[in-house]
Amino acid sequence: MKISFTINNNKVTLDVDPSMRLLDVIRNELHLTGTKEGCGEGECGACTVLVKGEPVNSCLTPIINVADRDVMTIEGLRETKEYRIIADAFADRGGSQCGFCTPGMILVTYALLKKNPHPSEEEIRFALSGNLCRCTGYQAIIDAVKVASEKGIKL
């Protein structure tokens, strides 16, 4: 089936099985490998992408469900100035260790700050609760979100 959608502001049309996981389309068809697979069952959040600005697990999303919609991966976000602010905040706080959860964490952070530019610690923890990290104990990531928020991403 021919399915069109927008990825990182580029329109693409692919002839694929509609049940194919968005994650496999992104990694194996489009070769955008910043989106990671940590579990394939919607538990870890490493495969987070934004669909119409909302974070979703691309491992649970069949490609047909993003037809005619906007998808953003870390490869798209990293071209923005908001990314720079978030990434600098992660660097400042040590929010990235092994790096496997990091693209997902950064996308969720972006979506959160866009909706809620000055979240409380509780709101940050809540927003990140579907993205598992095994390295940091979350503290550094949460602090990074705070720093990014203070830097005032005018989103």
Partner: peptide
């Protein structure tokens, strides 16, 4: 830092 945050780091997969 940068390669990991930007999704540029190449893991085995």
């Amino acid at each position: 830092n940068e390669e990991k945050m930007a999704g540029l780091a190449i893991f085995t997969g």
